[in-house]
Amino acid sequence: MPTCLLKYQNCNICIAYLTGESVWDNQCHGFFVENPVIHLSCIKHRSFGFKVEDVYCYIFDEDEENVWLKMETKYFQKNLDLLHLTATSTSCLSDKRSVTVGFDIKTVSTIGNYYWEMMDKHWLKDFWAAATNRMLTDVEIFIGTVKMMEVHRIILSARSPVLNASLNKISNTAGKPIVTFGAEFDADIVKHFLRFIYTGSFKTTDNVQQLGKLATMYQVETLKNVCEVLSAEPPDAEKLTDSLLQL
């Protein structure tokens, strides 16, 4: 059956779909799915700063009372960073009718100061664009001896006490002050780090350890916490519910 992406604050975090055996009904001359199974998968939910605690669902039927079903965790692949839940409905679904499924998903925050709220999503994009387009930038960023980009001193100082102290030690000169990152850091990692300083938004990277090292060095505590969560070893499938969601 078709799948559906569920959005949370403009991000796709869940995939929902139905499965079941299609049988022929001679009386109605059509195919029906008896006792369909409702599936919900929350992909890489740890990186969003919250965990899923309880999920209930129902299949809407205008002819019958809609009963909420508690979804249960299912293990179907070892060491997969994914929470998969299912529930079996007593409904019979026609393959000629659209199906409406409702979900009630209870989530809790897992990282103290990293949570979701309603906000102007363009605010993040506009500030980062101001840096990448060199709009009134006043600090040069180097990796080793190579210039990478320019940024805004006030944002670096506000977000990192280490960078604030470093920039305050630089005396006024004719040129722009320089912040130099060690040559051992990849350019993409430094860019991820600076983007987080500007936007507070984490972008997926394959080198979380290096990003976490930068966050620790420059005391960007929220990014440090996020990297610690993502660097944790994935638990065994048998401990998925108790361990995978505990940060």
Rank of each mutant, 00 (worst) to 15 (best):
L163V: 08
F50K: 02
S91N: 14
I155T: 08
V146G: 01
N79A: 03
D126L: 07
P161C: 05
I105T: 07
T137N: 04
I59V: 13
K125R: 10
T107W: 00
S157N: 02
M149N: 04
G112T: 14
Y58R: 10
A130E: 13
V55T: 07
N66C: 15
N79M: 09
M118N: 14
K74P: 00
S89A: 05
D54S: 08
K78W: 07
P161E: 08
H122I: 11
V55N: 03
Y114I: 06
L156Y: 06
T132M: 09
V146N: 08
S94M: 03
E140D: 14
K74E: 13
M119L: 12
E53K: 13
M148H: 05
T137I: 08
L93M: 12
G144N: 02
W123M: 12
I105F: 02
W123R: 10
M135W: 10
R153K: 12
K74Y: 13
N66K: 11
F127C: 02
E64L: 11
H122T: 15
E150M: 14
E150C: 14
L82M: 09
M118L: 11
T90M: 02
F76N: 10
V67H: 06
M149H: 02
L80H: 07
T90G: 00
T100A: 10
D126M: 04
V99N: 07
N66V: 14
R97Q: 15
I143W: 01
E53P: 00
A87W: 01
Y75R: 07
G144Q: 02
Y58L: 11
K106V: 09
V101D: 01
K96V: 12
L69H: 09
V52S: 01
V101K: 00
M135N: 11
V55E: 05
Q77G: 00
N113K: 13
E65L: 13
Y75W: 00
K121I: 13
I155S: 04
K147W: 02
F127Q: 01
M118I: 11
I105E: 02
L69Y: 08
R159N: 01
A158I: 06
K74I: 15
W116R: 06
R153G: 03
W123K: 10
K125C: 05
D120T: 11
L124M: 10
L163C: 09
E150F: 01
V139T: 04
Q77F: 04
L69V: 04
D138T: 10
H122Y: 12
S109M: 07
F50G: 03
S91M: 05
V162W: 08
E72I: 14
D61Q: 06
V99I: 15
M148G: 05
L69C: 03
L82W: 00
F60K: 14
D61A: 05
E62V: 09
Y75D: 11
H152Y: 09
K121E: 11
G102K: 01
